[in-house]
């Protein structure tokens, strides 16, 4: 198996510290000035972060869009529901249990999770609904956490599970529930260990708002956004391919891999292009072509060598 090397960060991509600090102040000011975000801003605490690799020149999506246009069905299926209805969710204290086919099963609390070397990763996020954002996540490589629990040789997959708290998550209550809970996701072990795959604990330099998956979520930028499971309580290493929420719900529409692929349409819409949220306007939407693996092909295409990505969508 080829050894993957983290590409070096070119000097041109490293933001000078004063600019970096100033930007943070700008963001904090912007956050405080948005009334709808008052609660989230009050709860979001700054994190100690250093810039990470895989950056992009594309401008980050405004934080207002990142925190008010969300799919997080535990809080409702409307795009504004997660921001509007997640006020009662309590992301602290929190525990994340890692078990299954591992030598050293372990439960991480928030201090342990935030104790990993935190990096800022500015990633494109391509939703399966044909829109995209650029989000400055704060997190650490999932591989670091997996190394600590020492996966057994028999472990082939990683299964993820979201918390179930109907009292705090109104979308988990009521007559019509869009998905069976808990929300579950999965990756192949080699995908999970890829340096691009991170567990995020923050965005825009601060702890995650509830609507973005507080306190810890997965980010796999070469896959559709729904793979980025939120508010994770459990990670299990398994031998068999784990069940994933969307592929169980509609197997002909959503596969296990869910790699961004402009050539494989969703049955009900084209995946060839996407709208970049927060860019352009009503009359000149930021529509652009969708890139294979969401533009991360040079880093991840090798994971799928020899696979038919039309069949394994």
């Amino acid at each position: 198996m080829a050894v993957y090397r983290i590409p070096p960060v070119p000097q041109s991509e490293i933001t000078p510290e004063p600019v970096y600090l100033n930007r943070r102040a700008l963001i904090a000011g912007a956050l405080a000035s948005i009334p709808a975000l008052g609660a989230a801003a009050a709860a979001a605490a700054p994190l100690a972060v250093k810039p990470g690799p895989f950056g992009t020149d594309e401008p980050p999506t405004p934080i207002k869009d990142v925190t008010t246009y969300n799919n997080f069905y535990e809080f409702g299926v409307g795009k504004g529901d997660p921001a509007a209805r997640s006020g009662n969710f309590k992301p602290e204290p929190w525990t994340l249990t890692v078990d299954g086919l591992v030598g050293k099963p372990r439960t991480f609390d928030l201090d342990a999770l935030r104790g990993f070397p935190l990096e800022e990763r500015v990633y494109r996020m391509r939703c399966v609904e044909a829109w995209s954002m650029v989000i400055p996540w704060v997190g650490f490589p999932l591989g670091l956490l997996l190394d600590m629990v020492e996966p057994l040789g028999s472990a082939k997959y990683v299964a993820f599970e979201t918390v179930v708290r109907p009292d705090e998550m109104p979308g988990q209550k009521g007559l019509f529930q869009p998905l069976p809970w808990p929300y579950v996701e999965g990756l192949r072990l080699d995908e999970a260990r890829h340096p691009l795959a991170i567990l995020a604990v923050g965005l825009y330099g601060r702890t995650l708002p509830n609507q973005n998956g507080a306190p810890v979520r997965l980010v796999v930028p070469w896959k559709y956004g729904f793979k980025g499971i939120k508010s994770i309580v459990r990670i299990s290493l398994t031998e068999d391919e784990p069940v994933t929420s969307w592929s169980r719900m509609a197997p002909h529409e959503y596969g296990f891999y869910a790699n961004v692929n402009p050539e494989v349409d969703h049955p009900r819409w084209s995946q060839a292009s996407e709208i970049r949220i927060g860019e352009g306007g009503f009359f000149s939407p930021g529509r652009r072509d969708t890139l294979p693996f969401n533009g991360y092909g040079e880093h991840v295409a090798g994971l799928y060598a020899g696979m038919d990505l039309r069949a394994s969508y």
């Binding site: 008010t68 504004g80 009503f282 939407p285």
Partner: peptide
């Protein structure tokens, strides 16, 4: 906010 055209 978000995907204004789709919302409209």
């Amino acid at each position: 906010p978000g995907n204004a055209i789709k919302e409209f």
